[in-house]
Design a protein around this nucleic acid. Structure first.
Lengths: 350, 350
DNA sequence: TTGAAAGCGCTACCAG
DNA sequence: CTGGTAGCGCTTTCAA
């Protein structure tokens, strides 16, 4: 058993407060006494004040929780999520704060429990699909938090982009190139959707907010050139992975008239789409666009919408550490840019 | 102020233990009483037992610390580190444990303090350069840990590869192709080393253990074909980034007789080396090899040594969660494979 | 400068 | 099935 602060105090013959001060408030005792205390402590093998006890007493932990909707390991698998995390880590580092990555079980009840049990001073919530239950739990604990979801509630701190407008910008690019028969590709467009083509009565039916907004943005642009929602082919991928994107796109083979362009809700899916089209030999004919502008997008020549990933994370953490005095400054809208590369081009003449 | 468990107990008219049981040991009271307690608690806005207080009392936190030598954000910047983290996250997820990423300040004293203050049940230490101080601090706290450093101390839990043999394997490949005049490229080969060519009297002088072992492995293979250490050009990059690798390789221009091959200690550096050589127009003539086999290595055609990143992380966490009964099983040696791609070839006839 | 007192909020033993 | 008791290990007034 490790000795406690109390034991050190007894050994040195001073009070517990003095030992505590030796560690946490050096200016409260003579340098000499302090050295004597620290030396004795070292000799006894006292590892310093217990972090948990200290947190309890101080009412402060020194860690922020980071929450991901999907499996925690997804956070590292998705390049954009990694960039977000990088930004959060940078800010946390500067602030001297640790990052607690909390895995959320799939069942909502388990997720709520996980959030209740996290010893943190606040949360950064990365794009949680079904996020309201989570946010309410955080509110219930009275802890501050920042979201990156696509629909901030008034008063909530938030950092994100205009998903819909950003999506519209790529779609307008394609529409401008003459594309009219297109497919939209998202990850789990409907709950438990099969991989591939899907009937979606209304964009509003798409549960995941980010996917919904992006699809809506795509649709906006095509509606403006006379292509209505029902005429758009909707593809659902079983996860935001390259393989899933490829799998979904293969469903286009079933179509009598394949689309001339595929608009993906993420670069990862778009790269998967390219994989499938290249494998099928038809990638020259079909334009593909992504979203995020991850590193691989450049070498793949993927046309996409760039959003600042690290900055998103950095701002989120910053917003948590230094709440703006003016609550209205608590919502940060980041810019996006259309990046046109070689994966998109005019509709081939047939 | 949020109500406490005590307030709930008083409101319901039961003892504190009973309320505690309602949350943590449902089988210890009647379903009905439990519901009454939980309902009242909800009404009062009691957020459930405080995680910190619970941890203090239970003597268990439910989180493992993850330590990186360099800046925490590096953990997300380096593709191999990300794979390691993915593995750790997977195991933690399965185990229901959170991950505490602790930023370590650059000064050793600060780093020690950070480790002392981390509220965790154990640590996964990812390849810390100056790791002994850190490990001693962990030992001082009496917490279990797993390292991935290249020189496990007897009795320590460890998961890693045979760095030296793995490095030797790529070097032998190049030696077999006839290369004799080669450059070795590492990240911060000597402390505060300038970018570029470096004189290193002895491999043993290289402080970072991983870099040292890999360089030693490279040297082994060339020694076997008659090329002694002093004949090898040593390149130091100012960080493990692509740009740093490129910068270091540009120093080769100063050489009258450039090497026919560059052996890098990581894929990231190797890709940087390729960047520089391509930009200089000379990449056909010079073979380049990496280490790790990250995703980008494949599309770049990089010859490299593959080590299983996710598995390294998974095993490390697993070793922490389920200590093997037999202490000798606490050291897991992972296999590596030489992956030959197009970035290496025979020495061009001159 | 130093120390005594008073908990932070909770859980677990053990007796009823 | 329930509740009393006894801390987990520390920090922080406040008075000496």
């Amino acid at each position: 058993m490790k000795p406690t602060l109390r034991a050190v105090a007894e050994a040195v013959g001073v009070s517990r407060s003095t030992v505590s001060n030796a560690y946490s408030r050096p200016d409260q005792l003579s340098a000499e006494l302090r050295r004597r205390i620290l030396d004795t402590a070292r000799q006894m093998g006292y590892p310093g004040p217990d972090p948990t006890a200290r947190s309890l007493r101080r009412g402060f932990v020194g860690a922020v929780g980071v929450l991901f909707t999907s499996r925690l390991s997804y956070a590292f698998t998705d390049p954009f999520a990694v960039r977000f995390l990088t930004g959060v880590a940078e800010a946390a580092e500067r602030h001297g704060s640790s990052l607690l990555l909390v895995p959320l079980p799939a069942e909502p009840a388990g997720a709520v429990k996980a959030v209740e049990n996290a010893a943190v001073d606040g949360f950064c919530v990365y794009c949680a699909g079904d996020e309201e239950g989570i946010l309410d739990t955080i509110r219930g604990r009275g802890l501050p938090f920042v979201t990156t979801s696509s629909r901030p509630r008034a008063g909530d701190r938030w950092v994100g982009i205009d998903e819909r407008a950003a999506a519209r910008s790529v779609a307008e690019h394609l529409a401008g190139l003459g594309h009219r028969r297109v497919a939209l590709l998202g990850d789990n467009v409907l709950p438990d959707a099969a991989t591939g083509l899907l009937r979606v009565a209304d964009v509003a039916d798409v549960p995941h907010p980010t996917t919904r907004e992006r699809l809506a943005g795509f649709a906006d642009a095509f509606a403006a050139v006379g292509v209505a929602w029902p005429e758009l082919a909707i593809l659902s991928a079983p996860g935001n992975t390259r393989a899933a994107g490829a799998a979904a796109v293969r469903a286009l083979d079933a179509l009598a008239e394949p689309p001339t362009a595929v608009l993906a809700c993420s670069d990862v899916l778009a790269l998967g789409a390219l994989d499938a089209l290249v494998a099928a030999g038809g990638h020259q004919a079909i334009s593909v666009t992504g979203f995020d502008d991850i590193a691989e997008a450049e070498s793949a020549g993927l046309t996409t919408v760039r959003q600042p990933g690290e900055e998103k994370g950095r701002s989120a953490a910053q917003l948590l550490f230094d709440p703006p005095a003016d609550a209205s400054a608590g919502q940060i809208l980041l810019p996006t840019t259309l990046i046109v590369r070689t994966s998109s081009g005019p509709v081939p003449r047939s």
